[in-house]
């Protein structure tokens, strides 16, 4: 499978679309850091867990758009024409699908790495701030559940109809501009902006980064829902492959 993964990565990552989208992600991240995060979130420092969480949740819709774009390539009409050949090979369709999920995940990790490097450069150059371990929890809470949910939803949507990707992309784009508060805020931007205001100020002069149980439950729910959709897609792989042929 390593050779298949190598080519999936080559097709997904070493192309002008991905490089372009990576550049857009980077520029949007820098814009967010220098225009919003520099002032801090909810009366906290720009380098607080809340501000960093806000940064990640602000860039996440654009990252989602990139991930959805990558996934849409696996369900395009052109891809289906190639599948006429690939489906006649002895490769295990579930392992093949998981290899492709791995390729998308590598793409996601690459984007995140670039955005974290940009943020590290921002914090060091603007604030001489080096304590990046404090950002670990916002990274886990914000990125992982949203990514797994989008991956599961995207694959499920792709198996239903390729057009659904465009709907999901539009929703993702709309979430850049819509301000949702509360624990179930999908990307968490509204939550990171509002929840700290309700917390007492600690010895450091600002509320410590401690999310509510409700928020944690919501993140866990998104994670489990994503895994659930992924499982449903995996289980339907073989059956669906043959049904597709029936329609030809």
């Amino acid at each position: 499978m390593s050779k298949i993964l190598k080519y999936e990565l080559k097709r997904q990552i070493f192309n002008k679309f991905f490089i372009g989208l990576l550049a857009i992600n980077g520029l949007y991240a820098w814009y967010t850091l220098t225009s919003d995060i520099i002032a801090g979130t909810a009366y906290t420092a720009p380098f607080s867990g809340w501000s960093f969480g806000t940064y990640l949740s602000t860039v996440m819709p654009i990252i989602s758009l990139t991930i959805l774009f990558m996934m849409s390539r696996y369900f395009s009409k052109k891809e289906k024409q190639v599948q006429v050949i690939t489906s006649a090979t002895p490769v295990d369709p579930i392992r093949f699908m998981l290899t492709r999920c791995t390729a998308i995940t590598v793409g996601f990790i690459l984007i995140i790495t670039v955005l974290l490097i940009i943020s590290a450069y921002f914090y060091i150059s603007f604030f001489k701030y080096y304590n990046f371990t404090a950002f670990l929890l916002p990274i886990i809470y914000t990125l992982i559940p949203s990514y797994v949910f989008i991956l599961g939803l995207g694959i499920l949507a792709g198996r239903v109809h390729q057009g659904l990707f465009y709907v999901l992309m539009l929703v993702s784009l709309a979430l850049c501009f819509v301000h949702i508060s509360g624990a179930f805020d999908f990307f968490g931007r509204g939550y990171y902006n509002n929840y700290p205001i309700t917390l007492p100020v600690s010895a450091g002069g600002e509320p410590a980064f401690s999310v509510s149980d409700k928020f944690l439950l919501a993140r866990l729910a998104y994670l489990l829902l994503g895994l659930g959709m992924l499982t449903v897609s995996i289980q339907s792989v073989k059956r669906k492959a043959r049904r597709d042929s029936l329609r030809i």
């Binding site: 499978m1 050779k3 298949i4 080519y7 080559k10 097709r11 192309n15 052109k78 891809e79 289906k80 024409q81 190639v82 006429v84 050949i85 690939t86 006649a88 090979t89 002895p90 490769v91 093949f96």
Partner: peptide, 24 residues
Amino acid sequence: PQSFGLYDELPVWQFLEYMAALKG
């Protein structure tokens, strides 16, 4: 098949190497 698609972005050798990997 009568009608099929290929990965246009890959060179011939790499496409065949990819297909070979799928065929084990």
